[in-house]
Amino acid sequence: MQIVFAITLALLCAAGLVIVIRLVRGPTTLDRILAVDVLVVLIVGGTAVGMAIQQDGSNIALLAAVALLGFIGSMAAVRLVEKKGTHR
């Protein structure tokens, strides 16, 4: 089972690296918002796998809080882009 956890975390890390490339490049602000949103989801998934490794579920509140913060942050940033009227 340890091998499965290691493979899962390695795949999630690779996905995070790919997302960070898009975050740095991203021609428009919307691309960056999208990349940060996916990155938050990867962090939530990685934390869940960490909970499975430790066999301890007391971090579930952390998962809910991070998902909530990601949602509110992305929504605020998108509304800001809409208000400004430009995407650069």
Binding site: V4, T8, A15, I21
Partner: peptide, 17 residues
């Protein structure tokens, strides 16, 4: 489920790139 979910995350990230 864990490996499938991680593969899905990686594929989605590659698609975003």
């Amino acid at each position: 489920l864990l490996i499938g979910g991680a593969v899905f995350c990686l594929l989605g990230a590659l698609g975003v790139l």
